[in-house]
Design a protein around this nucleic acid. Structure first.
Length: 605
DNA sequence: GCCGTTTTCGGCCCGACTGTTTTCAGTCG
């Protein structure tokens, strides 16, 4: 359940080539401005929505732009390519004639004239103010009008000199809160990784479960949808009306602040800055409340709208017809009332899951039990902690049929990467371990560095000794998009390159993905029979959910791999499964759900 | 701005909490 503040910030306006955009040309000869990507269109629409909101525009018009941003941002195909082909964009959900035209305009010119116009009256820096808690469009508008505040810096100065408190509707307390929030703005932008969120979620759940009168406690929100990171935790409890659960929640050890306090809803903040919402409802409302509190917001709106069409009102207490509750105890009941089968939380993003549910074409999502092996792990030979034998045994304990040992190669000096000679010795060691270990197949592999020019850092001779190779970029992250893309495409041209590991190189909260044309990588993977990795390390989760879905839609296979550097982190597989489910993946889309024989065929390119 | 087995106009999801509002607007999820 997010606000726009969490949307990625645009680095700068899209470059506008001068040779494009000749008006009056028929559709088939439309030429797109160079490098307009779906994400660019989404950013411009989102920014326009923010500014229109501050301007006090019709909220439904604002929502239309936000929906369009989400639709285009999650599209499996390049919207620029669709424009060039003359596709009818108004067939996309939430895109009408006007927005189709605006998408065309952005694709052809790199600009959105309405946004440029709007920025003349509403400074775009105001969007940053919206990100501060307690500041919505109305207050930002008043600060701008009455105190000429356009930036966070100006807001801070006004607060420090007591000017804000003098405004009607503001107070000295509000002023203090604003100054505090500005101070920790940097920290608040970090989102919490799933393992850290899980630790708190488990602790809090156990803490609340013992409370008298409490029946069930469950963490909902983006945590339950298994997003790669969470902004806050949304906890739902069912209890008897007289239960002291709310007081107990407010006293949770580690809570440093109570941000809101009510009988059915309260919010605390932990020392780490993480916010936790608790919502308490009666047991009869459990299903409806769980749907409501799991979100996403867009999914809920869509579900409720279907309800309205059927004469139903849906809120967190249940499904109501003429004021009478007709469902709400379970999630299945709620979905059934709007004529839909149960939809898994990971899919609830309004990215087509409702339409698929209505048509009966929801994917049969992959589960942890489908996984038959791990195709990317390290040992002491490079930067791992455990031996080949320990890793293989740990894989066997997890019920796997196989594991691939993929230590770094020589260019990764910091990871003590293997050169040809050391790798040859390791392959011999794998043979020795294999000869004495039953019940697990150890594949010979390596995580081969893709050099700056796209060549691999081992020669074909030693590469030929491997069962398959996992290839990855570990250097020169800042190449321009065209060069980065060409570099990786060249690596994929090598028939030894079976799996492309962590394809965007992102590290959550630390390093942005390198600039690469993922649509081209996916197309290239399809043409070459190359497999894309979904790296299950919780700080990577790379590919993203949306890229997974794009790959699946193009018929590209994925490998869900832990990149484990110790036996314990083989368990990260479940985070990869979470992400895969968000990307609509089924067992058949993932190579390491296959048995050994089938796997061997797959990577014989 | 989108959309239509009642509609091309008039709707558009719904409720909790906060603050200074003396009856509700703004914010948030």
């Amino acid at each position: 359940m997010l606000r726009t503040a969490n949307a990625p910030r645009p680095a700068s306006r899209i470059r506008t080539p001068t040779s494009e955009a000749k008006p009056g040309k028929p559709a088939f000869s439309r030429r797109p401005a160079a490098g307009v990507h779906n994400a660019d269109v989404a950013v411009l629409f989102d920014r326009l929505a923010d500014l229109l909101e501050i301007q006090g525009a019709n909220p439904f018009r604002v929502r239309a732009y936000r929906n369009a941003a989400r639709t285009v941002g999650g599209l499996p195909r390049s919207v620029a390519a669709m424009v060039v082909e003359g596709a009818d964009l108004s067939e996309l959900p939430g895109i009408g004639k006007d927005l189709a035209g605006k998408i065309g305009e952005i694709v052809e010119t790199g600009h959105l004239a309405l946004l440029d116009e709007t920025e003349k009256t509403v400074p775009r820096d105001l969007i940053e103010l919206l990100a501060l808690p307690g500041l919505g469009p109305k207050r930002v508008q008043r600060l701008h009008e009455e105190l000429s505040i356009d930036t966070v810096g100006e807001l801070r100065r006004a607060a420090e000199t007591g000017k804000i408190a003098k405004l009607r509707g503001f107070s000295a307390e509000f002023e203090r809160k604003i100054l505090r929030d500005i101070g920790r703005r940097g920290a608040m932008e970090r989102r919490t990784l799933l393992p850290a969120a899980e630790e708190i979620a488990n602790e809090l759940t156990a803490y609340l479960e013992g409370t008298p009168g409490v029946d069930r406690v469950i963490v909902a929100g983006s945590y339950r949808r298994r997003r790669d990171t969470v902004g806050d935790l949304d906890v739902l409890a069912t209890s008897a009306p007289e239960s002291p659960v709310m007081d107990r929640f407010l006293a949770f050890p580690g809570a440093t602040e109570v941000l809101a306090k009510g009988t059915t809803r309260s919010t605390i903040r932990l020392r780490s800055g993480l916010q936790i919402d608790l919502r308490v409802v009666p047991g009869a409302s459990y299903g409806a409340a769980l749907v409501y509190f799991t979100g996403s917001k867009a999914h809920n709106i869509a579900i409720r709208r279907i309800g309205v069409g059927k004469g139903l009102k849906i809120n967190e207490y249940g499904v109501f017809r003429d004021g009478k509750r007709v469902a709400g105890r379970t999630e299945e009941e709620v979905y059934a009332k709007v004529g839909l089968p149960y939809i898994a939380p990971e899919l609830r993003e309004d990215r087509g899951e409702i339409e698929a549910a209505a048509k009966g074409t929801l994917p049969r999502l992959i589960a942890l039990g489908d996984i038959k092996g791990d195709l990317h792990v390290h040992t002491k030979a490079s930067d791992g902690q455990d031996s080949i034998e320990a890793m293989a045994k740990a894989a066997r304990e997890r019920g796997y049929e196989y594991i691939a040992i993929t230590d770094h190669t020589k260019h990764a000096t910091i990871a003590h990467g293997l050169d040809s000679r050391r790798l040859a010795r390791q392959l011999a060691e794998i043979d020795r371990v294999s000869s004495r270990l039953r019940g697990i197949k150890i594949f010979k592999s390596a995580e081969v560095d893709i050099l700056g020019d796209g060549s691999l850092d081992l020669d074909d001779g030693i590469l030929g000794e491997l069962d398959f190779a996992v290839c990855a970029v570990h250097s020169q992250f800042d190449l321009p998009r065209a060069k980065q893309t060409a570099r990786i495409l060249r690596a994929m041209d090598n028939p030894r390159c079976t799996i492309l590991a962590h394809p965007t190189g992102r590290l959550l909260n630390e390093r942005l993905p390198y600039d690469v044309d993922m649509e081209r990588l996916i197309a290239a993977a399809r043409e070459r029979g190359c497999v894309l990795e979904l790296n299950a390390q919780p700080e990577r989760l790379d590919l993203t959910d949306e890229h997974c879905k794009m790959a699946k839609d193009q018929g590209v296979k994925l490998a869900i791999s832990t990149d484990a550097h110790s036996t314990a982190t083989l368990d990260y597989m479940r985070f990869g499964i979470d992400q895969a489910r968000r990307g609509w993946l089924e067992a058949k889309d993932v190579v390491n759900t296959r048995g050994m024989g089938e796997l061997r065929k797959l990577w014989r390119r």
